[in-house]
Simulated scan of single mutants.
Amino acid sequence: MAGSPADLMRVNLLMVFNEPDPDRRAAVIAENYAEDVVWHEPDRIIHGRTELERRAAELRAENPDWVFRPAGAASGLDDIGHLGFEYGPADSQPSRVRGMDIARTKDGAVIELYTIVTEIRQPS
């Protein structure tokens, strides 16, 4: 499944953070992330695949009916990938969070991931 930086960004958003099944999510992480991946969130830094799996599960548990949606197309340049996202209720309500993921990749795997939140909207 590993591929270009743009492909990895789509995998990251849709097959990891939207995946409800922990075994499928773990398999995708094992195939597409370096063992020592580092993920920079706005309020913490996660080290390694195991911690990335744990944090992804936490996010799913916090808002089980929410989904991530791409905001535009994934892009890549050399070893860097980028994808904007929206996050919110799966139904037709507007997304509550907007942001972007940027990743450094090597040999078809994410080695470092940065999540930047650009907007948080309160429910109306």
Rank of each mutant, 00 (worst) to 15 (best):
A6T: 02
R25T: 10
E31I: 00
G84F: 03
P123S: 09
L14M: 09
A26I: 06
E119R: 15
A2D: 02
L8E: 05
G84A: 08
V117H: 06
D23L: 11
K106W: 04
L8F: 03
H82G: 05
N18R: 04
G84M: 08
L52D: 02
H82N: 10
L83C: 08
A109F: 03
W66L: 06
A71I: 01
R44Q: 15
L59E: 14
E19M: 06
F17D: 12
L8P: 06
G84W: 06
S95R: 04
R49D: 00
E41G: 13
D21S: 11
S4L: 03
R104G: 11
A26S: 13
D78N: 12
A34F: 07
V97L: 11
A34R: 13
E41L: 14
E58R: 13
G48I: 05
D36S: 00
D65R: 07
G99K: 06
A109G: 01
E58Y: 02
A109R: 15
L83Q: 13
P42K: 04
V38G: 11
L77T: 09
R10L: 11
G76R: 12
E119T: 13
P64L: 05
R10D: 02
H40R: 15
Q122T: 13
I46Q: 02
T118L: 03
R24S: 09
M100F: 07
N18S: 01
W39N: 03
I46N: 04
R44D: 14
D36Q: 00
M15K: 14
A109E: 10
F85H: 05
G99A: 11
A27M: 11
P123H: 11
Y33I: 13
A73D: 14
M15R: 14
M9H: 01
R60T: 09
N32W: 05
L8M: 08
I46H: 05
P22G: 08
E112K: 11
E31W: 02
P20W: 06
V16Q: 09
V38N: 07
D21Y: 10
A30N: 08
G84H: 04
A34C: 02
P5T: 04
L77M: 00
S95F: 04
V28Q: 03
S124R: 10
P70E: 05
D101Q: 11
L52S: 08
E35W: 11
R54Y: 06
W66N: 07
G99H: 09
F17P: 10
F17R: 12
V67M: 03
G88H: 04
G84E: 06
E19Y: 07
E53I: 02
T105W: 10
Y87M: 13
A109P: 10
G81K: 10
H47L: 00
L52V: 07
E86I: 03
A90Q: 04
T50C: 00
A30S: 09
G48Q: 07
A34N: 12
I111L: 12
R104I: 05
P64S: 01
A74R: 05
L83V: 03
L83G: 06
G108F: 01
A73G: 10
G72M: 04
F17H: 15
N63W: 10
M15I: 00
A90T: 06
E19G: 05
M100T: 12
P94I: 15
A74N: 03
L83R: 10
G99Y: 07
M15Y: 09
G88F: 12
G3I: 02
N18Y: 08
P42S: 09
G3W: 00
R121A: 15
D7H: 07
R104Y: 11
A103D: 09
A56S: 10
